[in-house]
């Protein structure tokens, strides 16, 4: 049994005219100790998926369908109080902007100790020792001295380390990391990725890594799910998806990344832009931008078809399979 199972999840945001579907019938699983990358352009629904899992969808948005199971137990319909107990203790989270995750009025030590005490029966002294060890673990230099500093006294990269320490302090089995490196400089990005990978390896923590950056996915994830207009269009082992993508959207996305050593020719581009939530077309959401679209694509919505270690939601892929 997988650690996290998301089954036909649907998240809606009601508006005056009709409900906007931000996440449309997606299913995914994460095994213990696994890093699942969720990649897609802004508005694809990746962050909403993450928020639904930790039960932090802002009303009036709501989970309108499907199930989320953590360790075999359904968690999407729990009360707020029960959800709060799972957050932090079982599922930690790291967001893009570390400043919004930290309280500016308390020292990082106080915040860590408070979180540790909330989720365990350690004594206050023991909690502080644990907090210090965590800060050392995430690579804060002179942690014994820095533990009594306030968030604003840290640089961006160091703050993100503190947030990671907070996310792991109760020993969660899953971390939802939503664009954890996007606000950081490239050289700091590499440090944070290395840190997340090490934590995952040492403690067997599973990570759901939400990002728009294929480079981060390539270096960190075991498997990757590619999202487009609220749906998963392709999912599979990272190596396979990055090197031999099947879905035309993934192919276009990979080709549009500028690479070193590929000289002078124009970048491949996908014309147009992802449809906004209120104008998602019938059939395949990608058909208006897809160079291979045919009649069926405009009428019917493709479902994920598994081949080997990957699955893609595309009729093209479907046909190729039936031709074999």
């Amino acid at each position: 049994m997988a650690l996290l199972e998301v089954d036909r999840l649907r998240v809606e945001f009601p508006t005056r005219r009709r409900a906007l579907v931000a996440v449309d019938d997606i299913s995914l699983t994460i095994e213990a100790g696994e890093v699942l990358g969720v990649v897609g352009e802004s508005g694809a629904g990746k962050s909403v998926t993450g928020a639904a899992i930790i039960g932090l969808i802002e009303p009036p948005g709501r989970v309108a369908g499907g199930e989320i199971r953590f360790d075999g137990r359904r968690i999407d319909h729990l009360s707020d109080e029960e959800k709060r107990r799972i957050r932090g203790k079982e599922i930690g989270s790291v967001f893009q902007d570390p400043l919004t995750s930290l309280n500016p009025l308390f020292t990082v030590g106080q915040q860590l100790v408070e979180t540790i005490l909330a989720h365990s029966d350690r004594s206050a002294d023991d909690a502080r020792r644990h907090a210090l060890r965590l800060l050392e673990d995430v690579g804060i230099p002179a942690a014994a001295h820095r533990i009594d500093s306030y968030p604003h006294e840290f640089s961006g990269g160091m703050r993100q380390r503190v947030v990671i320490a907070l996310a792991v302090c109760a020993g969660p089995r899953l971390i939802i990391a939503d664009e954890p490196t996007t606000a950081l400089d490239v050289s700091i990005q590499a440090q944070i990725i290395a840190l997340l990978k090490r934590l995952c390896r040492d403690q067997g923590t599973a990570i759901m890594l939400i990002t728009h950056d294929m480079g981060v996915i390539a270096e960190t994830a075991d498997r990757v799910a590619v999202m487009y207009a609220g749906r998963i269009v392709e999912v599979g082992r990272v190596r396979q998806i990055l090197r031999a993508p099947t879905h035309p959207y993934t192919t276009g996305l990979m080709d549009s990344i500028p690479r070193l050593g590929h000289d002078d020719a124009d970048l491949a581009q996908i014309d147009g832009a992802m449809p906004r939530l209120h104008e998602i077309p019938d059939g395949c959401a990608f058909h208006s931008r897809c160079p291979h679209a045919f009649d069926l694509c405009r009428r019917r919505r493709p479902v994920l078809q598994t081949t080997g270690e990957a699955a893609a939601a595309c009729f093209l892929f479907d046909q190729e399979r039936s031709d074999d």
């Binding site: 490239v186 590499a190 990979m254």
Partner: peptide
């Protein structure tokens, strides 16, 4: 050289991204 080392390896050639210590 440091900056070049931090470019993510999208083609998955197996090159390890070198993590550089310190900050600006």
């Amino acid at each position: 050289r440091l900056l070049l080392d931090t470019i993510p390896d999208v083609e998955m050639t197996g090159r390890e991204r070198v993590s550089v210590p310190g900050e600006v």
